[in-house]
Write a protein that binds this DNA or RNA. Structure first.
Lengths: 156, 156
DNA sequence: TACCCTTTAGTTGTGCACAACTTAATTGTG
DNA sequence: CACAATTAAGTTGTGCACAACTAAAGGGTA
């Protein structure tokens, strides 16, 4: 139980939330540069990664992977469709659902994107062990924060 | 030198960038809820923290603290001015510069915001040591990523 | 002094995140 | 079966991030 209200904690927390914010944007900057030739934005690239790995799926499921709702995904997918990367089709089984599918062009982009993670990995200056460790901590942190949010949503 | 192009590394990197993105948004969600009664957004809160701690300063300097440019800060400060939290004034010494100053209302908000870091710290489930460690790693990561970006900007 | 170059804010346009809402289809229950 | 509740996707509106640009002021040098 190390949550005593020490004044130190207050400033440190400030700096953690801020550094997390800053680190995320710094990563975004690197991806933006590396992704330039693919014409993809960073969030679009994340969506492509999911589709490359898992194949076609409903918007709903894609949102679960990406932790995004339809308010973000619908316009994003519309832009990706305009760019010719994906195709959307109402499911026959469930007319509410829309299946997102890679086009041939979207599938082909996989080749061009092959070396992106390596480039970004090099820019991060982290070795494998550090990456795994940081990833694990962040996943745990996200889960805890989400749980705290959900809990308070129920309580209130 | 542990940057061999192992296939493992590629997937891990994917997950690091994504988890960072997700963690940042999860933090945003917690702040959004905790900040609700202050009428501040998360980025506005960060700006207030800088002003509470360091007092009035030019937009330029605030941007250095927050790692943001005028394209983001100008409209953000305009909204904060409309909300009555800050005041902007052209510098007499250098007519290009604009000084951002807290209003009495902005200064007063400090009281209401006093317990926010503690609430968020609790929601994060981290103890002090973990926070410091994570913060340090993220600051180092951000610095490395920024350096890689700046380097390539010069090179190209 | 005249000119160029830099610096500081601000504006415009695009895309993402998210809350609140709408629409349409499905499910559950009396 | 009828009808309320739920679910999936989309729409609308607000705010942030960032690139590209403009406007205006300052600084340096021929």
């Amino acid at each position: 139980m190390s949550h005593q209200p020490r004044p130190d904690l207050l400033r440190l927390d400030l700096q953690l939330c801020f550094t997390l914010h800053a680190a995320s944007r710094a990563f975004g900057g690197v991806y933006r540069r590396v992704l330039r030739e693919t014409e993809l934005t960073y969030p679009q690239y994340l969506a492509m990664l999911v589709l490359w790995e898992h194949g076609e799926m409903p918007v709903k499921k894609l949102g679960e992977y990406l932790r995004l709702d339809s308010g973000t995904l619908s316009p994003l997918l519309k832009r990706m469709q305009t760019a010719g990367l994906v195709q959307r089709e109402r499911s026959a089984q469930d007319e509410r659902s829309v299946t997102v599918r890679l086009t041939a062009e979207g599938e082909a982009l996989r080749e061009k994107a092959q070396d992106i993670p390596l480039k970004v990995g090099e820019a991060s200056g982290l070795d494998m062990e550090e990456m795994v460790d940081l990833r694990t901590r962040l996943q745990r942190l996200t889960a805890t924060l989400d749980a705290a949010l959900a809990e308070e949503a129920d309580g209130a």
